[in-house]
Design a protein around this nucleic acid. Structure first.
Lengths: 341, 341
DNA sequence: GGCGAAGTCCAAAGCGCTTTGGTGTTGCCT
DNA sequence: AGGCAACACCAAAGCGCTTTGGACTTCGCC
């Protein structure tokens, strides 16, 4: 069933039917009701491709996944973020387009996406410091919103971020209050903006107490369980081991717990640890008292809100840029306790 | 730059330019070269929406994510699967469209996707037993391929699946050979086809040795770390506890390990466990000897192959259905050992 | 009675591509 | 010389929608 069929069936012009369906003013309520009823009865849906061609808007938002190499890691938060964004899109009548793109081909991919008219806007994820994509997208003229921030970028852009610095400084303060002095950081890659900020948060908290950060207690890598395990294992074997860990992801945290327990210690007793918890649905740590003390912020909700933000930019490309800074909640679980004396 | 501009710039008709770009025969090699060069120089890309409208093909594949409720779990394999499929699509010049859809609205969503001409084909994931979607899609007339199988469905359809039954029966045999007799199963929801088959695999192996399955040793639930922990914990506290576990996902397995170690036992010594390992990129268990004995099969590769399969169905909708049954590799790690006597 | 303003409706153009059904030109063969 | 392919190109229609720029009624008002 297409518009022509529907309108000839109703004895009306395509114009009138189209305007009736799209809520225009100049069609009588009586015919509008007739049109709506007929459309429903025949399950008419406008062909999106034709609509897009006619309006110049595709009602789709793109998410680009940079592919580093064949064996590159997929970001574990990806699924929950997508789920959140997808909910917003479907409510707004938008589709979500995912492009897997070679990382050294990214610029060309963005230009191509624009030229082919695939999407009305983009989500930029995992920004690095001085991320070139922001300037690129401005130049191309494609509305976008960034999940995170890009330290070093001067130009204004719309973003949504967790207050990573504050989250990790609060977590560090909490550990310092418990008497911990040697606090290790098991971080993600620090060219990632979020990781950079988390380290700053820890260092700020240390500085406020007159403590100097110890480079030997800071690690950065891809955030796998094995990395968390190895990092914790190695640091705990040092002559002057840390008594507490700040960990950048629950997945790493699982490895940290394993390392701690393997040498006969217990989290929350001899060793404390706080993780950042994105509330990934398959790793949720609920229950009356959560296992892990954590700085918690739902990445799914971030997806929802960021989706809304990019839709706003599409509707009003010249509006001033908006920023949302989500404060992570500090959830006290069983993985922290007073520093051993 | 669009086709009209490009062709007037070349002094050729749109027809000729279009045919030159699309590799048709009736254009001289000289002009074809000219056209190609100009297209490259001006970074011309055909507008996908117009192309789709003209050809009736959208060059996009849809993946539908059923949303159960606001707090529903996102499938942890989703990200890696998508990454695999996305690679194939981008090589083939296809886009990937993701739709988050209310689960009780799924039928309407599929019809709508078809009517709006959004995609040329679909991937069906997480099939349940007697999954109604297969018949629905046949009726709608949308090419598709299924990730997994749907026990109870009579009609032919294209699928790719891991040989779950064989994988788990082999794993069980391995445990039986090590002397284990009480083998517990920590499974996913058994209305999911894969979970159903895994249980069958275990039961077949038991039956072959004249052993009866013990319902007290079988659990099914959403596969989280916490579920793995609780299930193992409870079963290990039974008067006649299992000496081995068959676990349906690495995430659960992490919980199982925690439960085992918490009561002072060691995996691979007093208690053995084998997990299915989808080789999720953020949970990869490499190293010379992997921590977990596992039935291993890359879900990313599954994504690549299934994507290829749906593309084939689009190109030849009347070709006989194809099936791919991937055999999981049994990887011997450190989580299994002889049964304690 | 005439006129302007609403109120309804419509024909046709246009979005940027593909494809059909040609036309005109060569070159070869008889 | 005539006929016929083969070759290289093109005008125009069409994909299914939206939107522009009217056209035709009806109504109220001077």
């Amino acid at each position: 069933m297409n518009l022509r069929e529907l309108s000839s069936l109703l004895g009306l012009s395509q114009t009138t039917v189209s305007r009736a369906l799209n809520g225009y003013k100049d069609v009588s309520e009586a015919t509008r009701a007739r049109v709506l009823a007929a459309a429903k009865a025949h399950e008419y849906r406008p062909n999106t491709r034709a609509q897009a061609l006619a309006t110049g808007r595709s009602r789709a938002i793109g998410h680009v996944i940079p592919k580093i190499s064949t064996h590159a890691m997929v970001n574990p938060i990806f699924a929950d973020f997508i789920a959140g964004a997808g909910e917003t899109y479907s409510q707004a009548g938008y589709e979500m387009l995912i492009s897997v793109v070679d990382v050294d081909d990214e610029a060309r991919a963005y230009r191509s996406i624009k030229a082919r008219g695939l999407v009305d806007g983009l989500i930029v994820s995992a920004p690095r410091m001085n991320d070139p994509r922001i300037e690129l997208l401005d130049e191309i003229g494609l509305p976008y919103a960034v999940h995170g921030r890009a330290t070093g970028t001067e130009r204004p852009y719309s973003w949504l971020d967790v207050n990573n610095r504050r989250a990790f400084s609060r977590a560090a303060e909490f550990l310092l209050d418990l008497g911990h002095r040697r606090i290790a950081l098991i971080n993600g890659h620090e060219e990632m903006d979020f990781a950079h900020r988390r380290r700053q948060g820890l260092e700020m908290a240390l500085a406020a107490r007159g403590l100097a950060p110890d480079p030997a207690l800071m690690r950065q890598d891809e955030m796998t369980e094995g990395y968390g395990y190895r990092a914790a294992r190695e640091m705990l074997a040092m002559p002057d081991p840390p008594t507490a860990f700040l960990v950048s992801s629950v997945i790493c945290m699982l490895g940290v717990r394993r390392a701690v327990e393997e040498i006969g210690l217990t989290l929350g007793r001899e060793v404390s640890a706080i993780t950042h918890d994105d509330q990934l649905s398959y790793l949720r740590d609920d229950g009356p008292v959560p296992a892990f003390t954590a700085t918690r912020s739902s990445v799914r909700e971030a997806g929802q809100r960021l989706a809304r933000m990019v839709l706003e930019r599409i509707d009003a490309p010249d509006a001033p840029h908006r920023h949302e800074l989500l404060e992570a909640e500090l959830i006290i679980g069983r993985s922290t306790g007073p520093a051993p004396s």
